[in-house]
């Protein structure tokens, strides 16, 4: 089966003379997995995610989604949550839902309203009147309300309170179909470890480790969080 995401010798630099943000990365992500993309600041996580969404161009190598280069076809099957607020703040939550419904055929409006209700978010509220954490929840709801094949979530729990993190992680687990893959980047490893099937450790733009979470626990006798701290010890 074609991997949902594949990097072939992928490199990316921002400035000449600087260390590349990604350096000859080779990766294959299979379907139906929840994968943690982990690494310290500047390790290339966000660069890889942006490349997968066509927000940056590659320097060399290839990045394929479902066997195709990044483009309109791949955008139909990828649901992306960036690390920043990317919605039009002049719209209400309801209008934003309508926007997603207009552009994404796989958007499930009922699911979005259900999640809004669970998190006590007023659909009539203007986005600019919401707190930063609530805006992030709205974005996550929109992204997870799609029936996508690949969910790419960049720091989905970074800006929300610990109480909401459990709900969000639960939302991620329960709202993706079994054949879909979730690629999740975060620093809060201990919070997400329980939901991960695989992890990718990125260091200086290179893949330091790509392994199933169970194998890590069995082979190293420690949690992913503990291994991360060991590998990336300053």
């Amino acid at each position: 089966m074609t991997p949902i995401l594949e990097c072939r010798d992928l490199s990316k630099s921002y400035d000449k003379g600087m260390r590349p943000a990604l350096n000859h990365v080779n990766l294959k992500l299979q379907r139906g997995r929840i994968i943690g993309l982990l690494g310290p600041n500047g390790s290339g996580k966000t660069t890889l995610i942006k490349l997968a969404n066509g927000l940056l161009s590659t320097k060399s190598g290839e990045l394929l989604i479902d066997g195709k280069p990044v483009g309109i076809e791949t955008r139909r099957i990828v649901s992306y949550l960036p690390e920043r607020t990317y919605l039009n703040m002049g719209l209400t939550v309801m209008e934003t839902i309508r926007f997603f419904k207009d552009f994404y055929e796989d958007f499930d409006e009922a699911r979005a309203y259900e999640m809004l209700k669970s998190l006590h978010i007023d659909p009539g509220a203007k986005l600019k009147t919401l707190s930063k954490g609530t805006k992030e929840k709205v974005q996550l709801i929109l992204v997870m309300s799609r029936n996508a094949q690949l969910y790419i979530l960049d720091e989905p729990i970074g800006g929300v309170d610990p109480a909401a993190r459990d709900y969000i992680l639960n939302t991620i687990i329960t709202n993706y179909n079994e054949n879909a893959t979730v690629l999740l980047s975060t620093h809060l490893i201990a919070d997400v470890e329980s939901v991960l099937d695989e992890v990718i450790f990125l260091r200086y733009g290179e893949v330091a480790l790509h392994a199933p979470v169970d194998a890590i626990r069995e082979e190293n006798g420690k949690s992913v969080d503990a291994l991360f701290r060991e590998v990336f010890k300053c």
Partner: peptide
């Protein structure tokens, strides 16, 4: 910032 949404629309 909104480009993150616009440029990822199909």
């Amino acid at each position: 910032d909104q480009g993150y949404l616009s440029l990822t629309l199909p």
